[in-house]
């Protein structure tokens, strides 16, 4: 079969103990029957493992940090595009979504497609806006408040019971068991990710997740529910299994339909003992465990590329229940010359 040639750029090559989704996304893409791909890795840090895995990426480039501003990011992508002629970019970090959404029309002008949520969709599912989101779309969410100062935290500790969750604007969450801990985490997260910091009620139950892909018109193109079987001390899944849970799929379809979500998504859900489903977080992108969905029969990265290119994409209707993933780490060996090339020239 003659496969269509494409160049896809992917970020999030930080396949470390708290992994980015880049490498599993690429593995999914590499298994595509329809496309013959050249993969460009885009990295922010010089030790992102994906950069050095030459069977994963064909070439890598360093990008300026999101905090350098949209203009530097666009200039860098423009430069990379002048060499590589990129068809689609798949950004995989939360923190880069805001600039990428803003850049989407300008990227389209230079021939690069993305498939991202709209700014409104992106903003309204934000951790800080979760309570309103719950009301608007009629889904259960835990109590939460966004705070901008330490003094607000003091006031809040009277309203909220401990333990409480303290969450960073983009990443990281900690469970605080007393006021001192909450204060410590507040400062840590505010310094790292900026304000606000989110204080969330601690709902007890089993954490379950859904990976999904929306076509922007209300259709669910792909959806696979999973339960983490083993969680590392960083709260990341080290093993997981696909579930047969109709209610989770219904909840996902309800959200996709009512928000007309465009792009990849991960729902983090707590299923309580009373069989209630609380959405604790909505990640506006493909999660790192995407390769489980690929293994269970839904190649979400491939479907996302098709949507980005405007190719008609039929919803996946089934997946294999009981498929498991067990994450493993792997010591990749390379020479310092590769590192030198990357750090001095910004590409490898």
């Amino acid at each position: 079969m003659n496969r269509r040639k494409l160049t896809i750029a992917v970020t999030g090559l930080n396949n470390i103990d708290s992994p980015g989704p880049g490498v599993p996304v690429i593995r999914g893409l590499r298994e595509s029957d329809e496309f013959d791909l050249r993969i460009i890795g885009l990295a922010y840090e010089n030790l992102e493992p994906g950069i050095y895995l030459h069977d994963v990426v064909d070439k890598s480039y360093l990008l300026p940090l999101p905090s350098a501003g949209i203009e530097s990011l666009f200039e860098r992508i423009e430069y990379i595009n002048s060499i590589e002629n990129i068809d689609v970019i798949i950004p995989n970090f939360d923190a880069e979504l805001f600039p990428m959404i803003k850049l989407e029309p300008r990227l389209a002008e230079i021939g690069i497609k993305c498939f991202l949520p709209t700014l409104e969709q992106f903003e309204e599912r934000h951790k800080a806006n979760l309570p309103e989101y719950g009301k608007k779309y009629n889904v259960k969410v835990p109590e939460s408040t966004a705070i901008n100062s330490y003094s607000e935290l003091k006031k809040l500790s009277e309203e909220f019971e401990f333990p409480m969750l303290v969450k960073g604007k983009y990443y990281e969450a900690y469970t605080a068991y007393n006021e001192e801990q909450a204060g410590m985490y507040f400062n840590k997260l505010a310094n790292k990710w900026g304000l606000p910091v989110i204080i969330q009620e601690f709902v007890t139950g089993t954490e379950v997740n859904v990976i999904a892909l929306g076509d922007g018109k209300g259709n669910t193109i792909a959806a696979v529910p999973m339960r983490k079987q083993y969680i590392t001390d960083k709260g990341k899944a080290w093993g997981g299994i696909t579930l047969d849970d109709k209610k989770m799929l219904e909840l996902t379809e309800h959200i996709m339909k009512s928000t007309k979500w465009r792009g990849g998504m991960e729902l983090e859900i707590i299923k309580t003992k009373k069989n209630e489903y609380y959405i604790i977080e909505i990640n506006p992108r493909i999660p790192a465990w995407v390769y489980l969905a690929v293994g269970a029969g839904q190649n979400i990265p491939e479907a996302l590329v098709k949507l980005a290119l405007g190719i008609e994409t039929k919803p996946y209707e089934s997946y294999q229940v009981g498929k498991m993933f067990i994450r493993y780490s792997w010591d990749h060996i390379c020479d310092i010359q590769e590192f030198e090339k990357l750090t001095t020239f910004g590409e490898l």
């Binding site: 310092i336 590192f339 030198e340 750090t343 001095t344 020239f345």
Partner: peptide, 17 residues
């Protein structure tokens, strides 16, 4: 010390530009 201005200290593992 390489041509590109990259310096590697094999004793400590540090590198510099």
């Amino acid at each position: 010390i390489s041509e590109s201005g990259f310096v590697f200290d094999p004793e400590t593992g540090d590198s510099f530009t």
